[in-house]
Amino acid sequence: MKTVLIVDDDQHVRYLVKDLLLKEGFRAVEAADGNEALAELEKRDFDLAIADIMMPNLDGYGLTEQIRTNYDIPVILLTAKGQIEDKEKGYLLGTDDYLVKPFEPKELLFRVNALLRRYGKAAESSVKAGPLFINKKSYEVEVNGKTYILPLKEFDLLHFFASRPNQVFSRAQLIENVWGLGFEGDERTVDVHIKRLRERFTKLGIAVSIKTIRGVGYSLEVN
């Protein structure tokens, strides 16, 4: 179970974020300002910190700086300060993400998950498939000097295929490896994602295609 540190001087915000995270199966610890947060960080290990910027004593910028130098966990700044100067300052001090209030609860969860995914699997490698360079670290695909940001599952699917070129996978195998065992949808989902990837390849005129092997499944072919 992942543990998240929530730092905000507004207890209502802390309550909201905590409630959200608990329902998603995280453990959450609250801190009312930067100094309290540092004290909590001393006490136990965290996987991620969500911090406000405007706080008494030690503010979010200072806290981010401290975490960057002393701890190896991702930081999300969750703040009502939405100006580029604030964002720039945040990123400059080493925050990994920046979310402006009012936020969509789903967006916060998406970002938390994205960051944990990236931090956990630094070992996972980037792959090349024909003209495609699939960068697992930045979740981007590079082709002919252009960069593509695919929807998450499409990217995961492409990365899975590209890591094992010309290998044939059944829909069930793909669901297990890309969507995970907890996935509740049906095999049609795989078909839909593959159809979209194919459409994108055709539009780009890339010499990579996903072949349907009748009665078995799919495989990625590099021409």
């Binding site: 909201l16 009502a80 300060k81 936020f103 609860p105």
Partner: peptide, 19 residues
């Protein structure tokens, strides 16, 4: 910057609690 912060913070809470 401050006024935007002061308006957005309560809005954020309204939204969150609605959720």
């Amino acid at each position: 910057s401050n006024i935007s912060h002061d308006i957005q913070s309560p809005l954020s809470n309204i939204k969150g609690y609605l959720n």
